[in-house]
Design a protein around this nucleic acid. Structure first.
Lengths: 103, 103
DNA sequence: TTACTATATATAAAACTATGCATATAATAA
DNA sequence: TTATTATATGCATAGTTTTATATATAGTAA
């Protein structure tokens, strides 16, 4: 795939564009959490969550630090939260518009 | 797939998360364009571009109007541009950080 | 009517992504 | 040393997305 600016931008957005990863980012909104706190919040195999965390990490959306057996993940930049908040707002508006059209 | 808020948010982000669709949205940034103006800008089959436009439309990111043989597409909400702008800014920062780490 | 143009859709193949299960690794404790 | 815990990875399968080619539809003009 041609490595243009749009390619990398799409890769980053793709990392955001998964329900499980959105849930993870929402859990991390107010600060770091260890994987052991994330797993029980999501109805999903631990191995899967580990993979999703890795996808977020590879795109630079989260970082991690190890402390003993535990690994703590955090969001790298608060503007990621803003971006998610903004997309959530947009979605809400699209829904309202759809409702109106259907009535 | 469970139809949660995160599911729909992910669907919207997925619609954004493709290099060709990002290019299309950038072309539409300053106002509507007919498909006949979009196609020659992108190195891709017309049928493909039509599909990408449909994906954006289904997610409510663009709307279209027909005028004779031509179909004009436009971005539905200027905040979509802001969102893309913000994600582009983030990406730039990730890159700068990566560069520093490598040096 | 036929011919032409712009856009959309059907189908199939290829490429990619997500998942579960099993297993590996790393850190700690006994 | 062995056992235990937390997290990551290998592999196979299932599911999804993208693509090219061909074809269909809708609007216009002659």
């Amino acid at each position: 795939m041609a490595e243009t600016r749009h390619y990398y931008q799409a890769e980053m957005l793709k990392a955001l564009a998964h329900p499980t990863r959105l849930q993870i980012l929402e859990l991390l909104k107010d600060g770091e959490l260890c994987v052991c706190k994330i797993v029980p919040e999501l109805q999903m195999e631990q191995s899967n969550i580990s993979r999703h965390l890795n996808i977020l990490k590879k795109e630079g959306l989260v970082t991690s630090r190890k402390e003993g057996l535990r690994v703590y993940y955090r969001i790298t930049d608060p503007r990621i939260n803003d971006l998610l908040e903004a997309s959530s707002e947009l979605l809400k508006n699209f829904w309202e518009r759809k409702q109106k059209t259907l009535v």
